[in-house]
């Protein structure tokens, strides 16, 4: 079960990454895995609806201390039991050339549905968390992070 959904995600992503939209071509330099947010989300959800949910909590700085190291923590309210748990937390940097940061497949063994990491942000943007529950629902939240060369003291 776990593994299947993981592979499904990968397959779609591989196809999607060959597609690029004109707006992305005008943007910052392309990386080898360039993919925009719409395609990246679709690759995971198929056509299923994504619901913004207060069950998904994101902790990230309002202003990044360093755009190359931006700490992000996503926590989801869930009992994490065998019948009701969070299967996956996906993190996207919505304006990076490749928006995908991490696809994290959890199990009830985690106890709490949480993933923390540090991402690179090329510029000011929203970080988005997309969550898949064991019931097949997709929930999300996002937060805006400002990346600035420096302030005024």
């Amino acid at each position: 079960m776990q593994r299947r959904s993981f592979l499904r995600g990968l397959g779609l992503v591989a196809v999607a990454s060959t597609v690029s939209t004109p707006t992305m071509l005008l943007a910052a330099p392309k990386g080898p895995n360039e993919l925009n947010i719409d395609l990246a989300v679709k690759a995971i959800t198929g056509a299923k609806a994504v619901v913004k949910s207060e069950k998904v909590h994101m902790k990230a700085p309002e202003i990044a201390e360093n755009g190359a190291v931006v700490p992000v923590t996503v926590t989801v309210d869930s009992p994490m039991t065998d019948d009701d748990y969070i299967k996956a937390i996906h993190i996207f940097a919505t304006k990076n050339s490749n928006v995908r940061c991490a696809d994290v497949m959890l199990t009830p063994m985690n106890g709490i549905a949480m993933f923390a990491t540090r991402v690179k942000l090329g510029k000011s943007q929203e970080i988005m968390a997309l969550v898949e529950t064991s019931k097949g629902e997709f929930l999300s939240t996002s937060q805006s992070v400002k990346v600035t060369i420096g302030g005024c003291g």
Partner: peptide, 23 residues
Amino acid sequence: FPFTSTANPKEFTEGWSFGLRLD
């Protein structure tokens, strides 16, 4: 000050992180 490392040179506080940390 939550933005010490962006408003002033980072090297002074290398290894320390600031931020509002409301939680």
